[in-house]
Design a protein around this nucleic acid. Structure first.
Lengths: 196, 196
DNA sequence: TGTACATCAGTGAACGCGCGTTCACTGATGTAC
DNA sequence: TGTACATCAGTGAACGCGCGTTCACTGATGTAC
């Protein structure tokens, strides 16, 4: 039944991490059981512990991988590292992104749960999100990305909060409105030069 | 053992909602069991269903109550309805607020989980958060609060995202920095007149 | 004032279920001779 | 080339536990006469 070899095992591991990313984002971390996760990956629950020491270890690994993938997706969407911000903002604050949790931003789907996780998971998040932030900072100020870091972080926080809010509102019209307003305000913030 | 009368029962109900608010914000909705919640309120699990039809009903009720309390707290902190925004922003994006989940903003603690809740809970959230937003809008543009609504919503989203991010970062210095940067950017956004 | 009865908030055990985790086992693959 | 053995990815049943929910019961309080 089981195929043999290091390569195969690593591919299985990748598959678990990938389905975990989708499940976590859709149902939450607490809302996703290991048996379900493993069934998604075409395996049974027992196999899990050949790949990860605990659920929390999978969470940390998955958070890291999700942020890596998001960074790669930003680069693919807007390959010019010194630009493309408006395009990224519009794609991020779109109804499509809001309505597609599984393929969406891990921060928007999981940020408050990550705040309640172990230090190891928070560290994985911190490292991963800084790569995303630094990508944004480089687009914001190609000649001095270092100084733009906290500003990029703040704009990112705004986009995350806006998407979460849009998902939590029961009024569709209002949910669409705040995405649009979020785009306007993000672009205004990005356009303004630092004021201190 | 049990005291008798409508008044007493309603007081117990209030107590359950209050401890649920604190627990949910600290451990998440999925992370808080009914038996624990009831023990917090000094009762046993069985009594729960004399007060609520289901856990989800408690969630919707608690979300509504939390937002009502937040609105009241804003009014108490800055009684002049046409002003006080800077004060509110500074209190919101403070290290004290970040480090005190239980007494803090329900949106920052629960927003992504609310996005995964039933429609009834989302509706309770929508109604409640609009009161908070309208309070902010009235402070932002006392003479035309209606037009300031989406802008207030967007600023609120930014504050929520920033607080969540600050809580999820493993690096204390960085977490403090983005609070400070969030204050600067929120004030800049609020100071600017609408640009369309 | 005293007794009998009705009310009902809360108790606590039990329900079936899914959780994270463990482990003896299977059986396909690879290696040795 | 064929056989015997080692490796090990994955299976599936079981562990103790907490989940949301139900319900027969308790006993303090209030009402009627």
């Amino acid at each position: 039944m089981a195929r043999y070899g290091k390569e195969h095992k690593q591919e299985t591991r990748r598959r678990i991490i990938e389905v975990a990313g989708r499940r976590f984002k859709r149902d939450g971390i607490d809302g996703s059981g290991i048996a379900t996760l493993m069934a998604d990956a075409g395996l049974t629950n027992g196999a899990f512990y050949a790949h990860f020491g605990s659920k929390e270890e999978l969470v940390a690994t998955t958070v890291a991988e999700q942020l890596r993938a998001q960074s790669a997706s930003f680069s693919a969407q807007a390959p010019d590292r010194g630009a493309g911000l408006e395009q990224l903002v519009r794609a991020y604050l779109s109804a499509e992104h809001r309505d597609n949790l599984e393929d969406g931003c891990p921060s928007a789907a999981l940020l408050d749960e990550i705040g309640r996780c172990t230090d190891a998971t928070k560290r994985a998040f911190t490292d991963g999100v800084l790569v995303v932030i630094d990508d944004l900072a480089a687009r914001l100020a190609p000649d001095d990305p270092e100084s733009a870091r906290t500003k990029a972080l703040s704009v990112f926080a705004m986009m995350v909060g806006t998407l979460q809010l849009s998902r939590a509102l029961a009024d569709r019209r209002l949910a669409d409105d705040i995405l649009e307003q979020g785009i306007q305000n993000a672009l205004a913030l990005l356009g303004a030069r630092p004021q201190r």
